[in-house]
């Protein structure tokens, strides 16, 4: 069973469908208590950094998420969800992120515009939960410098950027594993297996 954090609209249906195709039931995490209790937690998200943080604040989820991720509770953050773990974003100046990843989110092109499509992802040491393959991205912003304390998998547009990060059973992906075909589904399964092993 995975619990999916309510972050406004997101593309929740796609995330739920992907887990169901892996034979895993998905439920909602709407409260701080849900976040604390969930054996596996997914933080999805589409839309802007500022609106995403505002939704987490309004629902009173900020502290619970910080505590869970600092403690290494099995958590998967996707796309905007990954960015929300960072300290701040060029997209929404002045808005404080969850800050569990010491990184700033930057525009990947000037002017910032959504970059859609499949891009190769190459894992580095410690991030083998991500295998080399093609992932589907839909993002205007991203993390360009490898943050301290996190193992990375890298992709590149005009310049390299961080495709995914891992620390213990916490995995944060800029791409959408739920939309990355069989490769993405296998990643979801490996993340859950890693979480079971960590317990």
């Amino acid at each position: 069973m995975v619990s999916i954090v309510q972050t406004g609209v997101a593309n929740r249906a796609s995330v739920i469908a992907a887990f169901e195709r892996c034979g895993v039931e998905a439920t909602r995490a709407a409260t701080a208590g849900d976040i604390e209790a969930a054996p596996f937690l997914v933080l999805p998200g589409v839309g802007s950094f500022g609106a995403g943080m505002e939704a987490l604040r309004a629902a009173g989820l900020v502290d619970a998420l910080r505590v869970r991720i600092e403690a290494g509770g099995p958590t998967l953050a996707i796309c905007l969800g990954m960015q929300l773990l960072c300290a701040s974003s060029e997209e929404s100046p002045g808005v404080e992120g969850l800050g569990v990843i010491d990184a700033m989110v930057e525009a990947l092109s000037q002017p910032a515009r959504p970059r859609f499509g499949w891009n190769r992802v190459v894992p580095e040491f410690g991030c083998e939960v991500i295998t080399e393959g093609f992932a589907y991205y839909a993002n205007s912003f991203g993390v360009c410098e490898r943050p301290a304390g996190w193992a990375c998998a890298m992709s590149a547009l005009e310049a390299p950027f961080v495709g995914a990060m891992r620390r213990g059973a916490v995995v944060a992906c800029q791409f959408h594993p739920e939309l990355s075909g069989p490769w993405g589904l296998k990643l979801l399964q490996r993340w859950m297996a890693m979480g079971v092993a960590a317990c």
Binding site: A13, S14, E178, L179, G181, G184, L185
Partner: peptide
């Protein structure tokens, strides 16, 4: 759309 979503994991 719901039925297609359940059957695929690529963008729709």
């Amino acid at each position: 759309v719901e039925a297609i979503r359940r059957a695929i994991s690529i963008p729709l």
